[in-house]
């Protein structure tokens, strides 16, 4: 668990972070989001003490981070940044093994760990371990950056716009593969971005910041359905309703009702069918009901246009 306790940071009378408090439960994926200059990166960097707060404390598992020796603390926290910062004079293998070497692991263990990490991020160890950073594409370099951050098996991972410099197509691939990694490893992650689609897609919990203040700290769904103020509302855009529908799994909302002439849709394995997908199908076919069937559970039921309308107005105060 990471707890931010009344964190503030001033730079020459400019307040970058202003009295921010929140708790990230262990194994959760927390996204810090907000417009540039809102203090999200500064907040992130207080965790591994790259920024020393002017006021307040950061606690990891209820222990003040000041109680840990600095290098020890940092070696237990993986760190990925937008510019990646791969060491240009080291091979991919050496880059990944930096923290294990600092932790004085045995040579054999390090070697195995490097291959393991490369495979985890989807790069073939035989092909990549001897390459230099300059021989990698942007996406490959960022994968190596993630592998390097995870190599020391840290319980916490800090990621500062890690996919920001990657083109949109590759970014989506990286997001998907990183989410797969997270499902496997269950790290506690603090992730900074200004891309709200990225935030909504990846986060378990979102911290929205503006001008150094924490505005709202909630699940993506709640942030969409109950935005705390006009800023949050406008930040997540006019298509908030659609975004929310996109996050709701249709199978969770089907009702057991008979309907003769309904449109039908079968949800295959590994597939998700959201309320937004259902709405799209309904609009495409100009009809009011769709029968959804789940291949995995064999469950079947109806989604109606009327229901979707209900969800869309739900909780939205205006």
């Amino acid at each position: 668990m990471i707890e931010f306790k009344e964190i503030s940071k001033q730079y020459n009378h400019n307040t970058a972070v202003d009295d921010v408090s929140f708790k990230i439960p262990s194994h959760q994926f927390c996204v810090l989001i907000g417009p540039s200059g809102c203090g999200k990166t500064t907040t992130l960097r207080t965790v591994n003490k790259l920024v020393i707060p002017s006021g307040g404390k950061v606690l990891i598992d209820d222990r003040d981070i000041d109680d840990f020796p600095l290098t020890e603390l940092r070696r237990k926290i993986g760190y990925v940044i937008q510019t990646i910062g791969l060491f240009p004079h080291m091979t991919v293998e050496k880059n990944i093994s930096v923290v294990p070497r600092l932790l004085k692991w045995s040579r054999e263990k390090i070697r195995r760990r490097v291959s393991e990490m490369l495979e985890l991020v989807g790069l073939n160890p035989d092909q990549y371990s001897k390459k230099s950073a300059s021989e990698l594409s942007g996406g490959e370099a960022q994968r190596v950056g993630v592998a390097r951050a995870l190599a020391g098996d840290p319980p916490i991972l800090l990621m500062d716009e890690p996919f920001g410099a990657v083109d949109p197509i590759n970014r989506e691939v990286l997001q998907e593969s990183f989410m797969r990694i997270q499902r496997e490893l269950k790290k506690t992650i603090v992730f900074v971005t200004h891309d709200m689609d990225e935030a909504l897609k990846m986060a378990d919990i979102v911290a929205v910041m503006q001008q150094g203040r924490l505005i709202q700290f909630d699940t993506p769904l709640n942030i969409l359905s109950q935005p705390k103020n006009a800023f949050v509302k406008s930040f997540f855009g006019n298509d908030r309703v659609l975004k929310r529908l996109a996050m709701m799994n249709a199978l969770d909302y089907i009702i057991d009702k008979e309907s003769g002439s309904a449109l039908s849709y079968t949800v295959e394995k590994e597939e998700t069918f959201s309320l937004k997908d259902a709405l799209t199908r309904l609009l495409e076919e100009q009809t009011e009901t769709i029968r959804v069937k789940d291949v995995r559970s064999g469950k079947t039921g109806l989604i109606t246009l009327e229901m979707i309308k209900q969800f869309a107005v739900d909780d939205d105060s205006g």
Partner: peptide, 11 residues
């Protein structure tokens, strides 16, 4: 970025 990464990694 390289220096930042080196610091963050606990060197």
């Amino acid at each position: 970025g390289v220096v930042d990464a080196a610091r963050g990694m606990g060197m």
